[in-house]
Design a binder for these strands. Sequence first.
DNA 1: GCGTTGACTATTG
DNA 2: TCAATAGCCAACG
Length: 115
Amino acid sequence: MSGPGQGEATAGRFFEQVYGAVLQVPRGRVTSYGAISALVAGHPGAARTVGWALHGLPPDRVDEVPWWRVINAQGRISTSCRTHSADMQRALLEEEGVRFGPDGRVDLDRFGWTG
DNA sequence: GCGTTGACTATTG
DNA sequence: TCAATAGCCAACG
């Protein structure tokens, strides 16, 4: 189609790179949006765009990309999605072995992954 | 091409 | 710990 890339280029290559970075996160570990942005293009300031990419994650990718392993730098879940609420994300992480504190926080010093 | 939006991050109070 | 503010980047309309 008109322009570089084909088909999926409609969503921007940045989105695809974000999904690829999330796929690199090992099971039982979590990472922050800023870390993903740094792994994608070296732009640590694009953390907001990363969150937006996952927010716009198509249903076809949701079953493929472990979006639940991506949380904020505070070790907390910031999801606002209805289909994927914070409670659901927490359950998925606990199932993978990630432990949460009494405040619902994750110890990034222990479970945090930065590639 | 410009303005708005958003699952962010860091700093200050 | 919580609330508010500033800075940042990319996609959408």
